[in-house]
Design a protein around this nucleic acid. Structure first.
Lengths: 349, 349
DNA sequence: TTGTACGCGTTATCAA
DNA sequence: TTGATAACGCGTACAA
């Protein structure tokens, strides 16, 4: 029997299962069986294989393995943003779950860009990932691409930013409910003129937090005043400008409290409040949303809400793995509880 | 001609190059050639292939591709920590470079654990990554595993935490030089009794920053006083305790300024200084290291240094890609410039 | 318990 | 310009 001819040189001289097999005069299959912990293999050969695999420094080639098993043991993660602490914490949660399994993480940053997100999804498909964890870029309008992926038999779990009415699992907080609770907290302080600095209403977060705000007012029979709702967007500058508008336009009556759509907007608003000579929370109370690292260090520490990014990551990863392992795993919208972080800016001592 | 028999059902019915080829009565090779933009293919067939590939929703299988080309177009990234802002920013830098190429990122978190780091490296090898970007876990002592990887023909570039004298490329700041400059800044304020809260001297960062501190003192002919060097470790609590030791032990003479090994240690120390009734910077000036997000919001804003994590990530990725593309790319220790962030804690106005 | 043949989806090689 | 064939390294199915 003529030995396999190794005429063509290989780039790095990687050890294959065949090398191990040849070394001890056994077939590749036996090596494969040992390394995959199949039962039907003699104890003696098992040890011999294990030993020489170790000695030769054999590293199984997952790529070849994936090709034949049609399973990559890889899950793709698409993240729209990495700068702030939220998504890194989500990633940490995902990692801690995935770490305990055989799966690996293919990581792509969409940078809040629909085009990049689409390219990312395509890349993940090309790499035959077993599932995808995705938080939508804010500019995304069309859901067709997600459908296409699912129809091709790939699992998707959304985290934080969900595409609704799409029949896919999703893990997020309940923005409406959380905004309702925060507003309720302000109302319990006795405040009645409560303003809302809303995010863009083109984004579900913006819409939902506004809804929660309105819901709380209605529940407490407080008359809605459209002048008290100003679109600030999600950043400091917008918060600053929106707050100025509030303080200047309604000269007769400034709001007694403010629900900002998130902490950055709240920071901007706080600056505007101070610049206009008002005190926080004595003249105007304010609460934020998202537990920005800076919120504890603001001149008046900001009351806000922790969105539990770590938990979101963990639960999303767990759900995806369950979808992969079990075709009958039900589609679910998992709500992660938020944690209110009460500081001085709302008027609490 | 009998159609290929698809008797065995395939999991998700993925479209392959063969499907595209059969559709227009051409060979798989032609399809392959078109999709790889090879020159020698008739314009007519090229268009037909491209068109039906699109129509059928063909997605090339990178795994099969990798198997035959022995190139995965994947680079592995090992990160020791994700909680603080430094590493996420590094990742962002890596991503922005890699995004412009065909490469993908396989991401693993070592959680500062040597065992996990070793497992991570093994996983990356199994997945046939073309190169590895790694920041060593702090507990790592043995470099043998890195050598093993390189000998197997895989490229490694270290970032931030480098294994020296190992003949591998590395991208980091110059800790000695930066600590020297920071200490020099304190000296220029006229301070003479300058203490150093050092990190663990088992870690190169700890050793180097101490060296830079000593270098600056020597350059300015300031006598070294071992009592002024206290090991605080890298966290708030250690900084607090170390500072207390400094303020209590040397009762006769408290230090006029402090170089903390990093910002968290500085925060702890600042608390201790305030608790003991001293003022910052009037009684004791202090500088940190690493530009923690909180540093701008401390009661006395902290003078510190930005380690340019984004730049580190970018340059590390660029260097690795060059190593991969060019076997003759020289091994290099690339120094990223730091940026001094002057605030009030050092005594500057 | 072990081995043989074959295929996973693609590219390299050589021939047509 | 195109196609047939043989890998790439491994697992599945079946035979020995």
């Amino acid at each position: 029997m003529k030995k396999h001819n190794r005429s063509r040189p290989r780039k790095p001289n990687r050890i294959t299962a065949e090398d191990v097999a040849r070394e001890i005069g056994v077939s590749v299959m036996t090596v494969s069986r040992v390394l995959n912990k199949k039962a039907n293999v003699a104890e003696g050969t098992r040890e011999k294989v294990l030993h020489t695999a170790m000695r030769l420094g054999y590293v199984p080639n997952r790529i070849a393995q994936s090709l034949v098993t049609r399973k990559s043991f890889t899950i793709g993660v698409i993240v729209p943003e990495i700068s702030h602490s939220f998504f890194p914490d989500v990633i940490r949660g995902i990692e801690e779950v995935v770490y305990t399994t055989r799966y690996n993480l293919l990581f792509i940053h969409s940078a809040e860009d629909q085009k990049r997100e689409e390219a990312a999804i395509q890349t993940l498909e090309e790499n035959q990932v077993d599932g995808i964890l995705i938080s939508m870029a804010q500019t995304v309008k069309k859901y067709t691409i997600y459908r296409r992926v699912v129809e091709s038999g790939k699992h998707i779990v959304f985290y934080d930013r969900c595409a609704r009415r799409l029949g896919m699992s999703c893990v997020s907080i309940d923005d409406i409910e959380t905004a309702r609770q925060l507003t309720g907290h302000l109302i319990q302080h006795g405040y009645k003129e409560i303003a809302h600095l809303s995010g863009s209403l083109k984004v579900s977060i913006g819409r939902d937090r506004l809804k929660g705000y309105q819901k709380a007012l209605i529940e407490h029979n407080i008359a809605m005043n459209d002048e008290l709702i100003v679109e600030s967007g999600f950043h400091e500058m917008g918060g600053y400008n929106a707050m100025k508008v509030l303080l200047e336009s309604s000269k007769k009556k400034i709001p007694r409290a403010v629900l900002a759509v998130n902490d950055p907007a709240a920071f901007g608003a706080m600056q505007a409040i101070l610049d206009m000579g008002y005190r926080i929370p004595e003249d105007i109370a304010i609460v934020g949303f998202s537990n920005d690292v800076r919120s504890a260090f603001a001149p008046t520490p900001l009351t806000t809400v922790n969105q539990q990014p770590y938990d979101i990551g963990r639960k999303a990863a767990q759900k995806l793995l369950r979808h992969i392992d079990n075709p009958d795993e039900p589609v679910e919208h998992i709500i992660v509880n938020t944690e209110h972080i009460i500081r001085r800016s709302c008027g609490c001592p």
